[in-house]
Write a protein that binds this DNA or RNA. Structure first.
Lengths: 206, 206
DNA sequence: TAGATTGTTAATCGATTAACAATC
DNA sequence: TAGATTGTTAATCGATTAACAATC
């Protein structure tokens, strides 16, 4: 099916399937079923089958899905067969934790560029990646043709940084700063803000 | 309207409204409109009015909404008028960043309990909060009647920690570990995993 | 008054689920 | 063969949007 007519909400579930499948693989399971996956993820089996069917026929009646095969297919569909280089802007406590996190590699991403505006930090490195000055964002990213960036600056700086990133050719931004940023329509933005999740749960607390 | 029949998806948007309103307040705006809020958030004005109308009439025809008033109402609705005590389990790079992050207070949460299994860390403190041993989770949380916890352990430990938390009386868990955990139905779980967001965006990259 | 914006209804749109033939 | 599970259709369910009377 034409990629452009797959609902966004389906794309959002594929990484969850992939994550669950990796754990199954790690645990030694070679096959699984929509039923099994659904139970693990809290998603109905029908929905999982429907989602996957938009991209092809990956299962076998009476048997289910081969874990390794479905992983390969999902990685291909999601465009994460190899790791994309990623730029991280803001190397405070959070940025440092992100840069040190080993979980990006082999899942589609590799943090290869770090930027901060603190002269004390510029020139130092994390895991072999040097921290550069904010002023170097445009040139560095343009030259390296980086497409993905993460913003881990304070809220006040996020919009200005986003503007620089867009200017430099970034087309996907994961924003850790607790503020909505505005970008041209050809640029994707995703947000990660723990407060939003916590407040959502607080609603149901007594 | 009866709290229990408000759609989940609406509750999920209220924290976004609240966050945008706080920024408006900070920037000195005293009134706003569904149009204005919608533009900032990328949500239709009709949807914002519809969402709010489920809880009452907070606006004025021809004028819009008073920022401070809507903030007050949303905080009341979301149950975050004062800060809930929160326990954080796992004080590695990420846990440390979370514990040092100042953005929880006054937004409904206050990290007051830290746990880790590293003897080197146990007994030390972050921002005045002592790091306790994992073994003390049950007693500490039970005694203090803490309801909310965040898991920032490695994936392998997450399920075991979740089990202890549930046993201790926790009813809301924010899971930073990249794995689905299973808990009884009276316990809420939210996930925050940057890989999921990044993979979702990677799909659209060329 | 004129203009603006709410709150709400009804229509539309889209997502989820139930069910089952196909088939391994 | 009998049992299990897929892929897919049609029905259901729920969420979003358009439109407008009410009214500030």
């Amino acid at each position: 099916m034409d990629r452009s007519q797959i609902p966004d909400i389906v794309i959002g579930r594929l990484p969850l399937y992939l994550r669950a499948l990796r754990h199954l693989e790690q645990a030694g399971f070679q096959i699984t079923s929509s039923q099994d996956l659904g139970e693990r993820l809290g998603i109905s089996p029908a929905q999982i089958r429907k989602d996957l069917s938009l991209f092809g026929e990956f299962g076998k009646q009476g048997t289910g899905y081969t874990v390794s095969n479905l992983i390969t297919e999902l990685k291909r569909i999601l465009n994460v067969e190899s790791d994309w280089p990623v730029a991280l802007i803001g190397v405070g406590d959070l940025g440092r934790a992100i840069a040190n996190y080993g979980g990006f590699t082999h899942r589609g991403f590799s943090i290869e560029y770090l930027f901060d505006n603190d002269p004390e930090k510029i020139g130092t490195e994390i895991k072999g990646v040097p921290i550069k000055a904010i002023e170097e964002i445009t040139e560095t990213i343009k030259e390296a043709k980086v497409k993905i960036a993460m913003i881990a600056t304070p809220a006040e700086a996020a919009q200005a940084v986003a503007d620089m990133l867009v200017e430099a050719g970034i087309t996907a931004i994961l924003n850790y700063a607790p503020i909505s940023i505005s970008v041209p329509s050809h640029v994707q933005v995703e947000y990660t803000d723990p407060i939003v999740h916590l407040q959502q749960m607080a609603y149901y607390l007594t």
